[in-house]
């Protein structure tokens, strides 16, 4: 579902964020991407969402190589990926409903379906009934859950999350990871970047560890391990 083939990324300022990274995440798998801040986790996520392009190598998502996408196709490509941010990036002046509906609005979903699907997504994160609330009226944990509802409302096959538990206490973090787990069980491929796996626990999922832009370990959880290509410089 997500495949990195000898991917290197050098930013215009000369910093090498990733060096010859290869790995593969199968459909319906949930994987934690770990490592200290600066290890290259964010770069991996940016390459998947096409916020950056690799300097070398190829990134495949949903069976599509990101290299060949024209800027016109990028919008459509991103609709196949749900993204959760540490700071949730909600529109503060729009009610919860509008925030969650945004991915459906951009994807030509009819109004009737839109209403139903937004409610379904809010139900899944336990926020049904808060549609008219503005994000600042919600707790930090609730805001993060709105962000998750927005990421899954269009039922993308791939869900990526950048430090989704970074601002939450242990109990809330566990709740959020539980949510991701449920999406995975429904068939979604999930990649969660976190610098603090010890706190949330790997809940039996595979773990990819980056250090200085290189994959240094691919520890399997208690689940059946999937083959992982590890390249070390």
């Amino acid at each position: 579902m997500i495949r990195f083939e000898h991917v290197s990324k050098r930013y215009p300022n000369g910093r090498d964020a990733l060096a010859d990274v290869s790995f593969e995440i199968g459909a319906g798998e949930m994987v934690f991407l770990t490592g200290r801040s600066g290890a290259g986790k964010s770069t991996v996520l940016k390459l998947i969402a096409l916020l950056e392009r690799p300097s070398r190598g190829q990134v495949w998502v949903n069976g599509q190589s990101t290299a060949k996408l024209s800027s016109r196709r990028i919008a459509r490509f991103r609709r196949g990926i749900g993204i959760v941010f540490q700071d949730h990036r909600l529109l503060q002046d729009r009610p919860v409903f509008d925030n969650v509906a945004l991915p459906l609005m951009v994807a030509d979903v009819s109004l009737r379906d839109l209403d139903r699907r937004v409610r379904a997504a809010l139900d899944q994160v336990g926020l049904l009934g808060r549609e008219r609330a503005l994000p600042p009226e919600l707790s930090v944990g609730e805001q993060q859950r709105v962000g998750i509802a927005r990421a899954i409302v269009s039922k993308p096959p791939v869900l990526i999350a950048d430090e989704p538990t970074g601002n939450l206490d242990a109990a809330l973090a566990g709740e959020v990871i539980g949510l991701f787990r449920r999406f995975q069980e429904a068939g979604v491929t999930v990649l969660i970047a976190t610098h603090d796996l010890a706190r949330v626990g790997s809940v039996g999922c595979r773990e990819l560890t980056l250090r200085d832009g290189v994959v240094v370990s691919a520890a399997a959880g208690s689940e059946e391990p999937l083959p992982v290509i590890v390249a070390v410089r």
Binding site: L51, A75, R78, P103, V106, S154
Partner: peptide, 16 residues
């Protein structure tokens, strides 16, 4: 700007 960036992130085209 924030709204535009988020809209593009969730797959909004430039035309949208």
């Amino acid at each position: 700007t924030a709204e535009i960036e988020v809209t593009k992130l969730v797959g909004g085209s430039n035309a949208f």
